[in-house]
């Protein structure tokens, strides 16, 4: 009888300890105060938001999602400061200005708030704990490699760059030139840049085509706006001219996907905004749980895939699978679990 009582007591105490321990480690979903901020309504941010909504469904944790009124750091500061005042403890933010955003982050971190960059990196050193998004350089390298392949490693390229004051533009430009330098029969014969709108992009790309219509064999675009603009110009060009100009763009705007489906352009690099959203808030949660960044774990690359006519209906599944793999690899590559 005495032995049975001791056994029962042991079972009860073990259960209580395990339960208490579990309860202490796992917060109530309502205790996580995570916020997400994007500068303006945009298909890219909408896709990121969908990834966050999927994460909310999987975890039962609600994320406050806010979209700004204009793409300026000032507007971002105002919105994020208001959210911080409401008690949010971890932020997933797209930095409106890669340098100026660090000022906002410094203030947040001083108040014990975690910041995770999504979609774009801030200038380093940065108070942000992580960056979740595309490996800009790798995507540009892959895009250039793909265009060279489409050209049969022989031909002339028009290199279309977006905003020249963006440091990422320089990274992309260098990556493209690095790849082209590998192939002696591939040349960049024209460059257009400093494009802030689709209208401006259309005008500049068409001017460049007019200048070297016989010589240009391929066009590479490494930004959203210029890809949409080039898609419109090349779609029109291919409907009226016999010559076919090879094309590699970036992002999966509906108008770009439509042109790929209709065979008017070749391919685009689809970033993984869904995965970027999903992983960025998972990282926020882990930071709130006490996980810490590994020394070389700052960048969590969300991956990218090429969209062609062949995989246009299935590429999203590829991105979801990629996201789950990246999520599983966080502990190995980017974050240390909390110490017991």
């Amino acid at each position: 009888m005495k032995k049975l009582s001791i056994l029962l007591l042991t079972v009860v105490l073990t259960t209580v300890f395990v339960w208490v321990g579990f309860a202490a480690g796992q917060k109530n979903p309502a205790e996580y105060k995570i916020a997400w901020f994007a500068p303006i309504p945009h298909p890219y941010f909408d896709a990121v938001k969908k990834g966050i909504e999927a994460w909310e469904k999987d975890t039962g944790i609600e994320v406050k999602k806010v979209i700004g009124q204009e793409w300026t750091q000032k507007n971002e500061n105002e919105n994020v400061e208001a959210l911080a005042a409401l008690g949010y403890k971890a932020f997933s933010i797209y930095p409106a200005d890669p340098t100026a955003a660090n000022g906002l982050y410094e203030e947040l971190v001083e108040h014990g708030i975690y910041v995770v960059n999504f979609g774009a990196k801030t200038t380093e050193p940065t108070p942000a704990s992580f960056y979740v998004g595309t490996d800009i350089r790798q995507a540009a390298l892959d895009a250039a490699e793909k265009l060279c392949e489409l050209l049969g490693y022989r031909g002339n390229i028009l290199n279309v760059l977006e905003i020249i004051e963006d440091v990422n533009t320089i990274v992309r430009d260098k990556a493209i030139k690095e790849v082209v330098a590998k192939y002696p029969d591939v040349h960049i014969i024209g460059e257009v840049a400093d494009i802030k709108s689709v209208e401006e992009g259309m005008e500049k790309i068409q001017n460049a085509l007019a200048a070297q219509i016989e010589e240009i064999d391929g066009v590479i675009c490494t930004g959203f706006t210029i890809t949409v603009a080039a898609t419109i110009i090349l779609s029109e060009f291919h409907e009226t001219q016999e010559k076919y100009i090879r094309f590699v763009g970036i992002d999966d705007d509906p108008s770009v996907l439509k042109a790929i489906r209709e065979g008017l352009i070749d391919t685009t690099v689809a970033q993984n905004p869904w995965g970027t959203g999903y992983i960025s808030v998972e990282v926020c949660k882990r930071l709130l749980d006490g996980w810490t960044p590994k020394p070389d774990g700052y960048s969590v690359y969300a991956g990218h895939v090429f969209v062609t006519k062949r995989n246009i209906d299935t590429y999203f599944d590829e991105l979801v699978n990629l996201t789950m793999d990246i999520g599983e690899g966080l502990e190995n590559k980017n974050m240390n679990p909390p110490k017991e």
Partner: peptide, 19 residues
Amino acid sequence: IVLIRNGLILLGVNIYFEQ
């Protein structure tokens, strides 16, 4: 305005000095 933008690209001026 259109001529200037068109001409600058046709002449292949340095993109960083375009403005």
